[in-house]
Amino acid sequence: MIRVDQVSHQIGGAPILHDISLEIPKGGITALIGPNGAGKSTLLSLMARLQVLRQGEIHIDDMQIGKVSDRVLARHLAIMAQSTHVSARLRVEELVAFGRYPWHRGRPGPEDHALVEAAIARFGLGPMRARFLDEISGGQRQRAFVAMAFAQDTDYLLLDEPLNNLDIAGARSLMRLLRQMADEDGKTVVIVLHDINYAARFADRIVALHEGRVAAQGPAAEVVTDALLRDVFGTDAEVSVIDGQPVVLV
């Protein structure tokens, strides 16, 4: 479980998050949504300790962010930041192998190699394993990064807008892979999404942020409503329910 307790955050004097308290239960996919500037990426990067937490507390299970060592946390929490750019010229298989680093710290054993192979096979990276990251498509690259996070073998996976720049096929296949990881491997996935429809379709729970506060949270069917779009997103798009699922008609 991820517990956020009275977290506030300012960037350059401008308040981004106001006194947020939130519990994300273990298992399933939780999507953070909200308009631009609502603070969803900030909240995620505080959970991922990419930004320093100054006010409030965040616990991942019984580990407190800022107190627990980075090495220990790396075995429980994998992160995939926005627009992950790697300047090093790496092959796909080399990138995936880095996922094991928190466990072997430079001395991979047979078990590490086996897990890397499993990750490569599972995410369908076999045919492109020897290609360089800058030679494959954006969707394939994102898949390689998720495979790396999978090889890291953590209970929690945090992703910041992984669907940016992906076409519909790439976006859907990535979300399906995450869904699989949550359902079959029991991973807890927290994901910042821009597109409400993807959140409604693939996430178990949605947390909507608005001006640094939690505006609504719960299953998609309860959260994604005309009222949410009007009050939080400031647009008059209609929500229609198809097969029991809310769909925003854009």
């Binding site: 090495r71 995939m80 930041a81 300047s87 090093a88 880095f98 996922g99 710290r105 430079g106 001395r107």
Partner: peptide
């Protein structure tokens, strides 16, 4: 050398891997 490999991945990825 192993730490340097991880650092070469960039700051965010390195931090995510516990470095």
């Amino acid at each position: 050398r192993a730490r340097l490999d991880v650092l070469g991945l960039g700051e965010t990825v390195a931090l995510g891997l516990g470095e």
